[in-house]
C-alpha cells in the first residue's frame, strides 16, 4: 500500500464531509458550491505555497531534523522578490528570472547556514532554526524598512490566480493551464522532490541519517555535508514559496506567513512522516497541504468562527497522526 494512500483517503473523507455539510446548511444560492470547479481551483491555488514549503520540509524531517524558520524565510524571500522587482529596472521576464535567482540564492544560503550551524556546532535543529526564525524575520523587516514593498509587474500576480474568471484579460498562455500556474509549479517541485528523495543517493543517504545516524556515519556517509545540503534544499523550496507568496499578495510583506511553518510541518506530519526521522513521503505531504486548506475553506463556507476552525484543524492533525501510528503499529 503506497504511503500516500492513507492521507489521501483522509483528504477524500474530509472533502466529501465538508461538501455535504455545506450543501445541507446552504441557505440561498447554489447548495453545491463546495464541489464547484471554481472552489477546487481555489483550494489548489491556496495549497500551493504550503505544498512548496512541504517539499523542503519533508526532506529535513526524513533526515531527522526540523526547520522552524519556514514562515520567516517565506517572508524574507517575499521581501527579496518585491525589492528586486521594484528596483532592478529589468523587463518583466528578466525581472522575474532575476527575482527567482535571488530568492533561490537567499533561501538556499539561509538554509545552508542553519545546516552548517547544526552540523558544525552540534546543536539541536530545533534550537538553530528557532534562532533562524527570528533572524530571518528581522532581516525581512530590515530589508523592507518595516513597510510593505510595492512593485509593478504585469503578470506576477497571475501566477497564483485561478484562470477562467476574467478570461477577457487573461494572457494567452493562461487558458490551457486550467489551474493557477503556481499549482503546476508546486506539482513539478513535488515530482522533483520525489525523485530526489527516492531515486538519488543523496535522498536515500538523508533517510539513512534520519533512521540511524550512527549507522550512517559508520558506513562512511558524510553526515555534516549532507546536513548542510538538506537544509539548503529546504531553504531553496522556501525561497520559491516566498516568490509565490509575493505573487499572491502582489506586494512584499515582511510580516506575512507568520506561523506558516506550523502549517507546513502539519502537512508533512499528516502525510505520515515521523518527526524522529527515517520516514516520510513528499506526495503524502502535498496531500496533507491540500487537507489543511480544505479544512480552512470548508469552515469558511460553513461560516464557522475562526476559533472553531482552529480547534478543528488541531483535532484533525492529532487524529490523522494517531490513526497513522496505530495502523503502522499493527502492521509492523
Amino acid at each position: 500500500m503506497p504511503t500516500a494512500l492513507g492521507p489521501f483517503l483522509v483528504l477524500l473523507l474530509v472533502w466529501a464531509g465538508f461538501g455535504l455539510a455545506v450543501a445541507a446548511c446552504a441557505g440561498t444560492g447554489d447548495p453545491w458550491t463546495f464541489f464547484s470547479w471554481r472552489n477546487q481551483t481555489l483550494i489548489l491555488a491556496q495549497s500551493a505555497i504550503v505544498a512548496v514549503g512541504a517539499c523542503g520540509m519533508v526532506l529535513v524531517v526524513v533526515a531527522g531534523g526540523i526547520d522552524l524558520a519556514a514562515g520567516s524565510m517565506i517572508a524574507l524571500c517575499s521581501v527579496v522578490t518585491a525589492l528586486v522587482l521594484a528596483h532592478s529596472g529589468c523587463p518583466p521576464l528578466g525581472g522575474f528570472l532575476f527575482a527567482l535567482l535571488a530568492v533561490l540564492g537567499v533561501g538556499a544560503a539561509c538554509g545552508a547556514l542553519s545546516g552548517a550551524l547544526i552540523a558544525g556546532l552540534r546543536l539541536a535543529p530545533f534550537i538553530v532554526t528557532l534562532g533562524m526564525l527570528s533572524m530571518a524575520r528581522g532581516a525581512a523587516k530590515g530589508a523592507a524598512d518595516n513597510q510593505t514593498v510595492n512593485f509593478d509587474h504585469p503578470w506576477l500576480a497571475d501566477l497564483m490566480t485561478p484562470t477562467a474568471y476574467h478570461a477577457a484579460t487573461d494572457p494567452w498562455w493562461q487558458a490551457p493551464l486550467i489551474v493557477a500556474p503556481g499549482v503546476w509549479i508546486a506539482a513539478g517541485l513535488v515530482a522533483v522532490t520525489w525523485f530526489l528523495m527516492e531515486r538519488t543517493v543523496f535522498g536515500r543517504n538523508a533517510a539513512a541519517i534520519g533512521s540511524n545516524p550512527a549507522a550512517a556515519r559508520l558506513c562512511g556517509i558524510h553526515v555534516a555535508g549532507h546536513t548542510i545540503a538538506i537544509y539548503a534544499w529546504c531553504g531553496l523550496c522556501l525561497g520559491l514559496a516566498g516568490l509565490l507568496e509575493t505573487a499572491k499578495l502582489s506586494q512584499g510583506d515582511p510580516t506575512t506567513a507568520s506561523g506558516r511553518e506550523l502549517d507546513i510541518i502539519a502537512a508533512v506530519v499528516v502525510g505520515g512522516a515521523s518527526l524522529s526521522g527515517g520516514r516520510g513521503s513528499v506526495i503524502a505531504a502535498a496531500v496533507g497541504a491540500v487537507l489543511m486548506v480544505v479544512l480552512r475553506s470548508g469552515g469558511q463556507l460553513l461560516e464557522w468562527n475562526p476559533w472553531v476552525q482552529e480547534i478543528l484543524i488541531g483535532v484533525v492533525i492529532i487524529v490523522a497522526v494517531a490513526v497513522d501510528r496505530w495502523r503502522r503499529g499493527r502492521s509492523e
Binding site: R204, A207, A214, A216
Partner: peptide, 29 residues
C-alpha cells in the same frame, strides 16, 4: 559487524546492504 545493530530500520534490505557505497550515475541510484 557491530554488537549494536547498525541497520536503518526504515530503509529496504538492498538499501541497507549498499549503504555508503551505493552504485550511482551522476548521483542517481
Amino acid at each position: 559487524v557491530y554488537q549494536e545493530l547498525t541497520i536503518c530500520r526504515h530503509l529496504t534490505v538492498a538499501e541497507n546492504i549498499v549503504l555508503g557505497a551505493c552504485p550511482q550515475r551522476f548521483g542517481v541510484i
